[in-house]
């Protein structure tokens, strides 16, 4: 028995030797990864982004118009309970508002003006440069599109494990706890071409990938611009293009992002 144990330990020794030989390779890979995510390369790659003007978005009519446009175009149901009230626990939403304090917890201090704390801030998927949801998804049902940096979502591949919801630091993902079509039929009905979902899958904002391919702007941006005083409240564009509208604003105005400390590289910018 002792003999076999010695043999085992010997083999284990060889194995660890093998692993330590492989470590330099791993090192090289990690180095490559860190370079990949560096700022230089990111700038060259196409990355769609949005700049949101928080002050302009204090107009409730504008925000409602944007959210309505999005949710109508994408057949996002309004989930209600038996009494017809909004079921907050099972809500599905792609774009909505949160209080400033909840959106930017790191920017809040005890002396911050009350009116700012209570400001409603438009929130949606950040289409992160290093999205945690993509990293954790076991089926690649959510992935980062190379061509424009959109974090895409395939509701037909999603198995509904909700790992992405645990991983997303922004609460941007919704799960269909219930049969969504049931609520669509009760509400505004099924509109247009966008496919409805089945129960048991996760969904979120896709930057209107479908509309973009038709040469249109995202539905929320289009709707917000139509509201009086809503011009440029939501601005959409490509970060890799130095002359894009988003870059022109980013170069001029003081903007912030949500939870930058986590390293996810959010691509929704806020003018404070």
């Amino acid at each position: 028995m002792d003999d076999t144990r010695r043999k085992f330990l010997k083999k284990a020794g060889y194995a660890s030797l093998g692993i330590s030989c492989a470590l330099p390779l791993l090192d090289a890979k990690l180095l490559a990864m860190s370079e990949e995510t560096g700022t230089h390369e990111a700038a060259a790659k196409k990355q769609l982004a949005m700049v949101i003007d928080i002050k302009k978005c204090q107009n409730k009519q504008l925000v409602d118009a944007a959210a309505n446009a999005c949710h109508t175009v994408h057949n996002v149901p309004t989930i209600t309970d038996a009494k017809g009230n909004i079921n907050k626990e099972e809500e599905v939403k792609w774009i909505w508002t949160e209080k400033f304090a909840n959106t930017f917890p790191e920017q809040v201090h005890a002396r911050l003006e009350r009116s700012i704390l209570d400001e409603d801030v438009v929130v949606l998927c950040n289409h992160c440069s290093r999205p945690p949801c993509v990293r954790v998804c076991p089926t690649q049902a959510t992935w980062k599109r190379d061509t424009d940096g959109i974090v895409m979502m395939d509701m037909h591949r999603c198995i509904g494990c909700r790992y992405c919801m645990a991983a997303c630091p922004y609460g941007a993902r919704s799960f269909n706890w219930n049969e969504p079509r049931k609520f669509l039929e009760k509400g505004r009905g099924i509109v247009g071409e966008y496919p409805t979902r089945t129960k048991g899958v996760v969904e979120k904002c896709t930057f209107c990938a479908d509309r973009l391919s038709d040469g249109l702007e995202p539905a929320c941006v289009e709707a917000a611009n139509k509201v009086p005083g809503g011009k440029d409240a939501l601005v959409f564009g490509d970060l890799s293009d130095p002359n894009s509208k988003v870059n022109l604003i980013l170069n001029k105005k003081h903007t912030i992002c949500r939870k930058v400390g986590l390293g996810t590289g959010p691509n929704i910018y806020y003018i404070i």
């Binding site: 954790v136 998804c137 089926t139 591949r157 494990c161 909700r162």
Partner: peptide, 28 residues
Amino acid sequence: IFVDMGQPARVLNVILHPTLHSVMFWDM
């Protein structure tokens, strides 16, 4: 894990699309 899936019928997608960067794939 299985009963927690929203779409249990699709659970084989984890094997059909093995995703090395997902810890859930490794866990399975």
